[in-house]
Amino acid sequence: MTETPPVRALFFDEPAEAVDALTRAVRDGAAADEIRGGLVRMPAAGKNAVLAEVGRVADGILDMNVFDIFEQSWTRFTALRDAAVMSLANPGGEELAEMATHTASFDYRPSVEVQLADLPVASVGLRAKLDFTVRGLIGVVVDGHLVAVRAGTWEFEGTLLLAGQKVAQRQGKVEIGSEIRFRRPIPLL
Rank of each mutant, 00 (worst) to 15 (best):
Ala83Met: 07
Pro6Leu: 07
Gly144Val: 11
Pro187Lys: 11
Glu17His: 13
Glu71His: 14
Ala32His: 00
Val147Ser: 09
Val124Glu: 05
Val149Gly: 02
Ala45Phe: 09
Pro15Lys: 08
Asp20Asn: 06
Thr23Pro: 01
Pro5Met: 10
Pro120Thr: 05
Thr101Arg: 14
Leu80Ser: 02
Ile180Ser: 01
Arg27Gly: 03
Asp63Val: 00
Leu80Arg: 15
Thr23Ala: 13
Glu175Val: 15
Gln72Ala: 15
Ser105Lys: 11
Gly144Thr: 04
Ile35Ser: 07
Thr153Asp: 10
Thr159Pro: 01
Val54Ile: 02
Thr159Glu: 15
Ser111Trp: 07
Asp82Phe: 02
Ala128Met: 03
Ile180Leu: 11
Asn90Thr: 14
Arg183Asn: 05
Gly136Val: 02
Phe106Ser: 06
Leu126Phe: 10
Ile61Leu: 15
Val40Leu: 13
Gly46Glu: 06
Val112Ser: 13
Phe182Gln: 07
Ala49Ile: 06
Ala89Val: 07
Thr101Lys: 13
Pro185Asn: 05
Trp154Asn: 04
Asp20Ser: 15
Phe11Ser: 03
Asp143Pro: 12
Pro43Arg: 03
Ile176Gly: 02
Phe77Tyr: 03
Val167Glu: 00
Arg181Tyr: 12
Pro43Cys: 09
Leu146Cys: 13
Arg150Cys: 00
Arg56Ala: 12
Arg127Phe: 02
